[in-house]
């Protein structure tokens, strides 16, 4: 089984978000980057397929050279090969088109992406790839098993879950549940050494089109101070929620 894991390189969850160049560009000064959490769950699930079902794992990222430490980390965790498509990730449709082009000439049985990235938050790249390649797609996946050519998937739905099955090739949007946090792997010394020998291919962009542009960023207005209510005067809280906030 050949697996491709899509890796988005994102600011660590504790990062304070700031912008520069007239609020048009994310300010990466002092920001730590990590593997997008949803992608890390997917990568770890892929490792189980590698160990138990002999799968091979390629990882792919659309980004500039600053994403390479993140890709090296995926190799240290255990991916076999990394591919970086050398371009700024302009928008979801651009990223999806770039990755879809690569998949067309490199056939995979299973493509694992995240439900959503924590920076762009589009929740669209895997669905767009599925649409472009006309392959099966399931998102919000919380469990995935593959037997021969058939996938069985548990998916979160609003207010519950459902169990689905379909044929490969398949692309999923994964999230926690695929594996748990305690299953995530920290690269060890041996993994880090081996990662240096593994291929990290840089390929040129196929100059796909994009359909949207982010033109200006801004942060929410500073909030008013919290209104404190004494625990002995909870009627006041109800009054504020009813008359002032109008949410009861």
């Amino acid at each position: 089984m050949k697996i491709l894991v899509c890796i988005s390189h994102v600011p660590d969850t504790t990062s304070k978000i700031n912008f520069t160049e007239g609020d048009t560009v994310f300010d990466s000064q002092g920001v730590q980057y990590v593997i997008n959490p949803n992608d890390e769950f997917g990568l770890t699930r892929a490792m189980w397929f590698k160990e138990k079902q002999n799968a091979t794992i390629d990882v792919i990222n659309v980004g500039k050279s600053n994403t390479e430490p993140t890709l090296r980390k995926t190799l240290a965790i255990g991916a076999d090969k990394a591919i970086r498509i050398d371009s700024e990730p302009i928008d979801g449709s651009f990223v999806a088109r770039e990755i879809a082009e690569y998949i067309k000439s490199n056939n995979y049985d299973l493509i694992i992406a995240g439900r959503e990235s924590i920076d762009y938050n589009g929740a669209m790249v895997p669905g767009l790839i599925a649409g472009l390649l006309q392959i099966n797609f399931v998102t919000n996946c919380t469990k995935l098993e593959i037997d021969n050519n058939t996938a069985t998937i548990e998916r979160e739905i609003d207010g519950g879950k459902e169990i689905l099955s379909c044929e490969l090739p398949l692309i999923i949007g994964g999230q926690k549940g695929l594996v748990e946090e305690s299953d995530l792997r920290i690269p060890n010394m041996r993994g880090i050494m081996q990662a240096r020998q593994k291929p990290l291919e840089v390929i040129p962009s196929s100059n796909s089109s994009s359909k949207t542009k982010s033109i200006k960023f801004y942060k929410p207005d500073p909030r008013e101070e919290v209104k404190l209510v004494s625990p002995d005067n909870l009627d006041q809280l109800i009054d504020l929620l009813y008359n002032e906030a109008k949410v009861l």
Binding site: I17, T212, S214
Partner: peptide, 16 residues
């Protein structure tokens, strides 16, 4: 739209 998981907003254009 919101981005960076609600830590920021973004003005975006749709060009299609």
């Amino acid at each position: 739209r919101t981005s960076f998981t609600n830590k920021a907003f973004c003005d975006s254009t749709i060009d299609s």
